[in-house]
Computed example of a mutant assay.
Amino acid sequence: MLAVLSGVFSGALLPLQTSVNNRLRQSVGTPLMASFFSFLIGTGALILATWVTGGRPWPQLGLATGQPWWMFTGGVLGVMVLTGNILLFPRVGSVQTVILPITGQVITGLLIDTFGLLRAPQIPLGWTRVGGAFLVLAGATAAVGMIRARGRNRSECVSTGQSPGVWLWRGLGLLMGACAAMQVSVNGQLGVVLGAPVEAALVSFTVGTLTLLLLLVATRTPWRGVAVVGRSNPWWMWIGGLLGATIVYATAALGPILGTGMTVVSMLLGMLAGSLLIDTFGLLGATRRKVAWTQVLGLLVIIIGVALIRVV
């Protein structure tokens, strides 16, 4: 029971991390710079965690000698997910920022399992898993508010966030989900090779930090040079990296205890609950949004769909 509650708690950290990083973006000026600081802080935290748990501040990379190159791409995929979250959040809200990547993650996860990609165990695509996928898509459709009352005209759709441009951002959300699914497989395999999930998380964050540093230099991204903490810069805007490090570690650590299915479901429950709370109460500086009953119904349908795909 404690492990399940840990999964729910860890899942609830994801929308909080998105809100925190979005606030950091407002201070440092760009999503890329905010992602860099988030990854840098998370890397520092994981170095300390590796030191405490393993007696050394670095992973045993020698154990990964001869392994395929893609085992070290988890950090690059994480950069895409985190930066995409920062871009997506202010345009569609925290609920959609969570739901759309879930949809992409489930679809990509089905493909990985069906064809045994990234050394994943091959699982046949039965009717139960297909039905679960359709439930997830139907739930996501309801949750993002694409089911509209009959008779609503185009101008009303635009005013409520249904402009044509919003579909591009929703497409980004689906792509982020695909990257997240691949990241889980990549980091999971690396954790098995290294024998410690915290070391796999450290490798992932280090690669992500270096990737972001190269992008910052290549694009000459400006930094506003904000004060570390002040009246206009709350202290909590710097903890996104700590939240991200916790989430990555929890995913790897809870899997062997609960199994993949229960880990995904418990963390999904936490993510959905956390995102609803952020939108309803406008937590951490987020814009306060009214949550419709269709969104709540959609979230419940998604939970059922994910359970069919991962548990049954």
Rank of each mutant, 00 (worst) to 15 (best):
L2K: 01
A3I: 02
V4A: 06
L5H: 02
G7V: 02
S10V: 06
S19H: 04
S27T: 13
V28I: 14
P31M: 07
I41Y: 07
G42Y: 04
A49P: 00
A49C: 00
W51A: 05
Q60K: 10
Q60M: 15
T65W: 15
P68R: 09
G74S: 07
G78M: 13
V81I: 15
N85R: 10
I86S: 09
P90L: 09
P90S: 11
G93S: 08
T97P: 11
V98L: 08
I99W: 13
P101D: 13
I102L: 13
V106E: 01
L111M: 12
T114A: 06
L117Q: 10
R119I: 10
P121V: 01
G126N: 08
W127I: 03
T128A: 06
G132Q: 00
A133S: 01
L137M: 01
G139K: 10
A140C: 11
A143S: 15
M146G: 02
I147Y: 15
A149N: 08
R150K: 13
E156L: 12
V158Q: 07
G171D: 07
L174Y: 14
L174G: 08
L174D: 08
L174V: 11
L175V: 15
C179G: 11
A181N: 08
M182N: 04
M182R: 01
M182S: 09
Q183H: 09
V186H: 06
G188Q: 01
V193L: 06
V193Q: 12
V193M: 11
V193A: 12
V193N: 13
E199R: 00
A201K: 03
L202Y: 01
F205I: 07
F205M: 09
G208E: 12
L210Y: 07
L210F: 11
T211E: 00
L213Q: 08
L214H: 06
T219Q: 13
T221V: 10
R224D: 08
G225E: 12
G225Q: 10
V226N: 05
V228I: 11
R231C: 07
W235K: 06
W235F: 07
W236M: 03
M237F: 14
W238R: 14
G240S: 13
G240R: 15
L242Y: 04
L243C: 10
A245F: 08
G255E: 11
I257M: 12
I257T: 10
L258Q: 00
M262I: 14
T263C: 01
S266T: 00
M267F: 03
L272E: 10
L272V: 12
L272R: 09
I278Q: 06
D279G: 04
T280K: 14
F281I: 01
G282R: 01
L283D: 02
T287E: 02
T287N: 00
R289A: 00
K290V: 15
V291H: 11
V291S: 06
W293D: 03
I304E: 01
G305K: 03
G305W: 05
V306P: 02
R310M: 04
R310A: 02
V312C: 04
